[in-house]
Design a binder for these strands. Structure first.
Lengths: 262, 262
DNA sequence: AACCATGTTTCATTATATGGAACAACTAAA
DNA sequence: TTTAGTTGTTCCATATAATGAAACATGGTT
């Protein structure tokens, strides 16, 4: 699941622990971490101590539970602002969502998966963080396939091999071959569809966001349900979707950072 | 500014680099980091390599710029969900904001500063992340003072000493003594006021969120401007504020984590 | 009182990080 | 074209920090 785990010394080990804690999805005991840890007790213990003292983990003394620390929230705010497409794309997302009246997602590639960095839901405005930071599979979401399709061949093959191919629904693509064939199709059409591949009744149309040099920067999708639109009816959004995606790409491209005074 | 920097070995150094990059607020060059770095070139270089390969930093090859990585956004989503008050408090914030018709903030303590983890703005529903993750000073915000006031004496003194006491406005409390005196008052009244101490024309009433054992879990505030309410009129929110804060505390307390099967 | 599970500390050994200096690659000036 | 000046990358002997087996606490259970 977690892509590469090359050895980056102590720092790598410490950071992998953060993922471990995140995986649990709840505060976790030392012993729980120990059981499926590759490190011996003392080592694990000191790593946790370090991370805790650094504020990357929180520790509840009474209950002896480790959880992800608030420092992460602070850092992520900065990360989101300075290195995601979200701040740039914000007004364009607003516009698109308003125009089509459906849910709009903005995503980026992260280790072959889709990291959602922003979302607009025209019916119910949502509280913050409810969408950003979530991840989804690359091989069975519209944004994921759109981004994979437009990578250069080497990267594309590498990331396709990394996919876990879990069969979520009947239409999920479950082999590398099926996915690769679909990606060819997507490159031709310039849009990807999610045909209830990840969740029943949920469909979407998605496009990649490309830089001037055709590097994949992210992906954009319009999501709806089969009770509202048929797959073929989604085609009607294609023009608006492509236009917005292209505009975001342009904006990101021209986003040269202020003065770099050395 | 950055509170404690005890030596936590290599991991500590690496993490402090993340803060450095975050401080810049924009993608940054190697040489920029080098100039105000306490580490020699080679060391800094390898730390950056490690962090980049770990996805904690992103690197733009063409422009040679480091930025905070997407992995942080993913981790932070988990952190926010599992270790902040926000998910628990969400419905109560909605309720309070709706009832009083003013902006509501939810914050937690982070190294003597206020880390805002959620926010409700009744007039303009905001996009995600626009508020969560931001930090504010502890000594001149309502939530900050409310939380400081209810810490045990040892912690309170320690954190008060850490404050930087910058004079934002005429009413900012700029000495430890003034702040400590104010904190006594706050403990008596059970609410704190921000009397335009951080920003002109912005006032708020705030209360701490306490556990059953009176540990400070966070703080809650109702913010408005002097054009809409006077300071004394803010009193009218006191009952609702205290009730909500208490309910959040209770909820958090009873939030015992599912099964901890070893 | 004896036992067991969980968490913490010690310390000799080993592996890793360190940083001065050399090396590239690229620009700007001579 | 040469020379000097940036900025980024690699080397390698040394110093430092991480390691982990085992001993030690601590608290709960029979």
């Amino acid at each position: 699941m977690t892509a590469l785990k090359k050895n980056d010394g102590t720092v790598g080990k410490a950071l992998s622990l953060l993922d471990k804690v995140a995986e649990f999805g709840r505060p976790v005991r030392f012993s729980e971490l120990l059981t499926d840890s590759e490190y011996p007790k003392a080592t694990l213990y000191r790593l946790l101590q370090t991370l805790t003292s650094q504020g990357m983990l929180g520790y509840d003394n009474e209950r002896q539970l480790y959880s992800l620390g608030v420092r992460l929230v602070r850092l992520a705010h900065a990360a989101w602002q300075q290195s995601s497409l979200a701040p740039i794309a914000r007004p364009l997302l607003d516009q698109l969502s308003l125009k089509v009246g459906e849910t709009v997602h903005l995503g980026q590639l992260d280790h072959g998966q889709v990291l959602y960095v922003d979302k607009r839901n025209p019916t119910s405005p949502l509280a913050m963080y409810s969408g950003a930071g979530k991840i989804g599979p690359g091989y069975c979401t519209g944004i994921g396939k759109a981004m994979l399709a437009f990578l250069d061949e080497e990267q594309r093959l590498r990331l396709v091999k990394q996919q876990s191919f879990h069969r979520y629904t009947e239409t999920t693509l479950v082999t590398q071959e099926m996915l690769l064939a679909e990606l060819v199709e997507i490159r031709q059409q310039r849009v990807a569809f999610d045909r209830e591949e990840h969740e029943a009744n949920i469909i979407c149309i998605a496009a990649p966001i490309l830089s001037g040099t055709n590097r994949v920067l992210g992906g954009l999708s319009i999501t709806t349900s089969t009770t509202r639109y048929s797959l073929s009816q989604l085609q009607q959004f294609k023009a608006d979707l492509l236009e917005t995606a292209q505009n975001i790409g342009k904006l990101a491209e021209s986003w040269h950072f202020p003065e770099i005074n050395s």
